[in-house]
Structures are given as C-alpha cells and as structure tokens.
C-alpha cells in the first residue's frame, strides 16, 4: 500500500503557471488600481503554490518556509500599495491608473 497515488508535481506547477499568467494578464489589462493590486496578489499566490508543490514533491519543509516569506512580502506590498491607492484617490479623484500617466517636475 506504499504505492499510493500522489498528486503529480507537473500538474501542480502547471496550475501555478496558469494562475500566474492570469494574474499577469490582469496587471497588464486592468486599469483600476484595486484590480491591479488583486492581480499582483494572484501572482504572488501562484508563486507560493509553486513553492509548496515543489517542496511537497521532495518532502522537505523549505517550500513552506518560502511560502511564509512570500506571505510577508505580500503583506508588506499590499499595505504600501493600498496607502498609495488612497493617496491617488485623494489626488486624482479616481482609481484609474491612466490618470497618473504624466509626471511633473
């Protein structure tokens, strides 16, 4: 009974790649800052999924540790990003990133 069916690593990595691509397309296509931040979260989550699946394939804890580091990166990134979003909303009155396409100074 040791020949158990385990989840193939390729399928997990394929899922992570597809999720990463969806997030990348979201970053490129969407023009709402909130949706762009959400797409960034999707991309970071896909990276974490790839780490977990690869770490589980070899049965080591390193994948989960990398996932925790990605988690802290996501927390820091989203706090700074939402602060920037609030400033952009106050300054431009909308959440469209094309409003901020010109630089001053």
């Amino acid at each position: 009974m040791n020949e158990a069916v385990v989840i193939p690593m390729e399928h997990g990595l394929l899922l992570a790649g597809i999720l990463f691509l969806i997030g990348l397309l979201g970053v490129l296509v969407r023009r709402n800052i909130i949706l762009i931040l959400m797409s960034l979260e999707i991309m970071l989550n896909a990276c974490g999924l790839a780490f977990i699946v690869a770490g589980a394939h070899w049965g080591v804890a390193d994948g989960q540790i990398m996932f925790m580091l990605i988690l802290s990166i996501a927390a820091a990134e989203v706090s700074v990003g939402l602060g920037l979003l609030l400033q952009a909303h106050r300054r431009f009155g909308s959440l469209d990133v094309d409003q901020a396409s010109r630089m001053q100074g």
């Binding site: 989840i7 997990g12 899922l15 909130i34 931040l37 959400m38 979260e41 989550n45 974490g48 999924l49 977990i52 699946v53 770490g55 589980a56 049965g59 994948g63 989960q64 996932f67 925790m68 988690l71 996501a74 927390a75 989203v78 706090s79 939402l82 979003l85 609030l86």
Partner: peptide
Amino acid sequence: IFYLVGAPFAAVLEVVIYAGAIMVLFVFVI
C-alpha cells in the same frame, strides 16, 4: 490544494493571513 499535497501549516496560513488579513485590508479600502 496545500492541504492535499501535504502542507497543512501552509494551508492554515493561507486561510488566516491571505484570505483573512490581507483580503480584509482590501475590503476596508473598498
């Protein structure tokens, strides 16, 4: 998926921190 591939601690962190804390930040801002 994390739980199924044998990473229960990462599954708990995903629910508590990602789907809990970080998404609540988005809810607050929206």
